[in-house]
Amino acid sequence: MSTRLYHSLRYALVVVCGLVLAFPLLFMASGSLKSAREISAFPQPLLPETPVWQNFVDAWEYLTPQVIGNSFVFSLGVVGLQLLISLPAAFALAKIPFRWSAAILATLVVPMFVPANLTLIPLFVVTFQLGWLNSFAGLIIPMAAQCAFAILLFRQFFATLPPGLIDAARIDGAGWLRVFVSIALPLARPALATFCSISFLTAWNMYIWPQVVAPNPEHRVINVALAPLAGGENSVLSPAIGLAGAVLAMIPVLIVFIALQKWYIKGVVGTGLE
């Protein structure tokens, strides 16, 4: 097999796999512009005859700015609190020698193997006892506390920092807080971008916890608001409006990924040291 034929087949395979993976997104984007007649037809046309942009207007009015704002408050609150907890903990586990650090690190691995459904009821009971139902505190704090993955991720990154860099700062009289803020954090931008994109996506896509702990309209997030539109015949709105709402819900995630793409790739393929 010639080299040119090999590369052609490889690129063709990549294109086919990409189209297969992208088909649900393309179907969602196409369906969001179809009329009620086209979206209920069988078989459905691949593309709308005439794009119905009114679907996006109706979806925006259905979701309301408050619901979208609640989703941003919830997602950014989870990401911010997890960073506040995990970054100092990870740096301490990686660079500050103290007793039982290995035992603490091993303990952090355990929650990652526990299915989330098993902890849902105990977590709800604790949230109820604290009086946090139907509040942003009940939405954000229990999810932000589940930061074992973040601690392990940042700990692994901080462990790759050259020991001489830390020792030089310590010899110059810098305390651990100064080393953390002035040296470790600036070098952690790739790991930060990787975690922020993953954590934001996870929080933005959550449905079960927001539905359980804060279903009231004042604290409803976008996935809880979109759920009734997936009811098919039981939905009062066209499925095309539901697809338009799903497209609107996808836009913030795309913006976050595009904004952090450069650092995300660095965080995946390298250690972050330049």
Rank of each mutant, 00 (worst) to 15 (best):
E49A: 13
G242Y: 01
F91M: 11
H7E: 13
D58A: 11
N134H: 12
A103V: 15
V79D: 01
I141P: 06
E49S: 14
E38D: 08
E61S: 15
L26P: 04
A246L: 14
C17M: 15
T119H: 07
P228C: 03
V16G: 06
S75E: 06
Y6N: 11
R170K: 15
D58R: 14
L25H: 11
P88A: 08
V110C: 06
L185K: 01
D172Q: 11
W60Y: 14
M1L: 12
P228Y: 02
F91R: 03
L243E: 11
L273V: 02
L108H: 08
P210D: 07
P51G: 02
L237K: 07
M28T: 13
F27M: 08
G242F: 07
Y62D: 01
T271W: 00
L187A: 09
N134F: 08
A144Y: 08
V20C: 10
F72I: 13
T202F: 12
I140R: 01
N216K: 08
L254P: 01
A188M: 00
F154I: 01
A106S: 15
E233Y: 13
A188V: 02
A90L: 05
I140Q: 04
F27C: 10
V16Q: 05
I121M: 12
F27N: 08
P48K: 04
P186L: 11
I96T: 09
V78K: 04
Y11R: 14
N216M: 12
I39Q: 03
A259E: 03
L254H: 02
V179L: 11
A225G: 04
L47Y: 10
L139W: 07
Q66I: 07
E61Q: 15
T107M: 15
